[in-house]
């Protein structure tokens, strides 16, 4: 509350001197080297330990995609709630959302592991399993790949449109691009709710195809958003120390981001507890299998 006396008003934000100058070239080289090592080991693993590599790729793909998607959700929420506090650091989530294509490519690559990751993809397994037969209408390879491609395309198109309107504001200041971003963001929320839920059920829940939990998508969303806020905080702090955001991002911005991360981490824990507690309490074997497998070790 701007007019609220509880919130200390910083008279003049101290201009942080850049702590270590612009991003040193060796940082970039180091990160590229790490990426190259990762690619090399993935290719090696693909031949040596196929199942494990496919699972690792799925994990990495969802984690990378999640950061971009969380940044996109952050922008959408800020636009919809009219939160002007985040304007100073808006370019950071916009850049993070710009990595959505990379996450998308990784998710598409992870589809090469369908055969080893998802038991419902084998006709002979399905033939001997009445439950999987009942799910055939949803869990089939063609539909799975098609849906995934559509979800990724929708998210990427939207992120690009939002970024375009944000950059346009640099050239022609005025409320029109803000209004356009508001409309785009509001329209995206229901689309995101449906696409994210179905994507989570497909990519993650169907790994255990007999198991189901209605809160699973929301739970994953909370986790993804918390992780994304963490990434956003790290990047914002680094950019503030390096110079580009020095003097723009004040301590109270970090306080607000930190509180948001705290709130969403708590929300994630709340959803984790709700799912676990309800399944533990009711003790229906169909549902408890998921936790039994996770409590028993590798």
């Amino acid at each position: 509350m701007a007019g609220h006396p509880l919130h200390p008003v910083v008279a003049a934000p101290p201009l942080n001197p850049p702590a270590f100058g612009p991003l040193p070239a060796r940082w970039a080289r180091g990160l590229l080297l790490a990426a190259a090592v990762g690619v090399a080991f993935t290719l090696l693993g693909w031949g040596v330990a196929h199942t494990r590599t496919a699972a690792g790729l799925l994990l990495a793909a969802n984690y990378t995609l999640g950061m971009g998607l969380a940044a996109l959700c952050f922008l959408v929420l800020v636009n919809v709630t009219g939160g002007r506090w985040a304007t100073a650091l808006r370019r950071v989530p916009e850049a993070l959302a710009g990595t959505l294509w990379l996450g998308g490519v990784l998710v598409l690559l992870s589809f090469t592991g369908i055969g080893v990751l998802y038991e419902w993809s084998h006709a002979d397994v399905v033939a001997g399993d009445p439950l999987l037969q009942a799910k055939q209408g949803w869990l089939d390879v063609g539909g799975f790949v098609f849906r995934g491609a559509v979800f990724l395309a929708v998210w990427w198109l939207f992120a690009a449109a939002l970024r375009r309107h944000s950059l346009r504001q640099d050239e022609a200041p005025g409320p029109a691009p803000s209004r356009r971003r508001l409309v785009l963001s509001a329209a995206f929320l229901p689309v995101l709710a449906v696409t994210f839920s179905l994507a989570t059920f497909d990519w993650l829940m169907s790994l255990a195809p007999h198991w189901f939990s209605t809160v699973f998508a929301l739970y994953n969303f909370a986790g993804m958003f918390t992780a994304g806020l963490g990434a956003l905080l790290v990047l914002t702090i680094v950019l503030r120390r390096l110079g580009p955001l020095a003097g723009l991002v004040r301590d109270d911005h970090l306080h607000d981001l930190g509180k948001l991360a705290f709130g969403f981490a708590t929300f994630w824990a709340y959803l984790w507890f709700c799912q676990y507690m309800l399944i533990w309490y009711s003790n229906i074997p169909e549902e408890t299998t998921w936790y039994v497998a996770r409590g028993a070790g590798a």
């Binding site: 939990s213 209605t214 809160v215 699973f216 929301l218 709340y270 959803l271 709700c274 799912q275 507690m277 309800l278 399944i279 309490y281 009711s282 229906i284």
Partner: peptide, 27 residues
């Protein structure tokens, strides 16, 4: 704000009755 209706939802969701027992009930 969260706890009260979460626990009200537990009144139903801790049962084994289809339509009541579902994990999305609290949120």
């Amino acid at each position: 704000v969260f706890s009260v209706h979460t626990i009200v939802s537990f009144d139903f969701a801790t049962s084994v009755i289809p339509g009541w027992h579902t994990t999305i009930f609290p949120p």
